[in-house]
Design a protein around this nucleic acid. Sequence first.
DNA 1: AATGATACTCGGC
DNA 2: TTACGGCCGAGTATCATT
Length: 342
Amino acid sequence: MDYFYAQAEERRRPMMNGKIIVVCMYSGRTPDSGVVSSVNYLGRALGIHAGMPIIQAKKRAPPADSIFLSADREYYAEVSAHIDSVIRGSLERVSQASIDEWNGEDSKAAKKAAGLKESILGASALKCSVGVAPSPLGAKMAASKSKPDGLLTLDEQGQRSLIENSDVEKVPGIGPKTAAALNQLGIIKVRDLGKADPVSLSEVFGKKTGSWLIDLGAGRYPAVLEEEKEQEEVSRIGTLKEKTRDPYLILSKLDELEKEAKQWLMEMKKSYSTMGIIFITDDMKTHTRSLSFKKPRVWSEDTAKDKEALIKQFLEEDLHEIRRIGIRFGNFMDLGKQTTLF
DNA sequence: AATGATACTCGGC
DNA sequence: TTACGGCCGAGTATCATT
């Protein structure tokens, strides 16, 4: 989907037409603390982008022409589910990649693409961009290139040329950190990866990422759609009103977050056998402390002792103040109907 | 030594 | 000169078990 959250808000309130729409995650620390989640193209033209601090975005957005909204993720999830059903109704195989992105495989993909765009528009009133190519990687890069409201179909040669002539940071999976490290090695475009030394790539990026980059440079990428994977963990994280090391202040925020995560476990009928706490200290570093259990636990079991122990452990090991806190459950097992027997 | 489980950090989106 | 969310999986180090 194109600028998904912001576009969904535009559709929800058409009277905002012509305005710069900035959808934000407000942390609650100060009135304007938080970051931009999504912004329409009017806002992008002024340099506003996802991940930008709200305070910075406000300096670029003329107040009379701008609307700053708080992200309503439940609503976007509903819209996403609706679009999902349209796509699944159209293509032979489908895998949802994120709240606003899908991969599909279909023997008539090129023939169906335009119609699918129309169906999505009809069902949701939202525009999207579609890429069709011989591989999922090529299709995704084709879709990105065609944004907004685009459709780009590539054959084998078109795909190869798009990929190898792209800057490395345009490749999904290569973000700012990896791109910077590659640029440091003189690798700017994907085609440069082909001439790079495989040994140093593996040294710098590790075995797995290293060989992935080597394959990419050699023009080898999977042609088949990956199986849709089950979610492996659920976490909820939030920002504390003030940075603190007080276990009671930490625990009270953690309890809110835990309720939400456990609601998810209950709805999804999952037991878990690891739980962890996520700490983001005032230097913005992330830390986690976790526990595993021999017997899987269900959402209704008490975790007070474990939370206390993990917080105590972290505070002993790290002297920073805590800015954000989160809770995580993982290592799921499905709860069958029989759980009530016990 | 091999394999699997666990704990934790990194970084992509 | 700074400002700064909320997720998740990948990757890897280390520990436990055989």
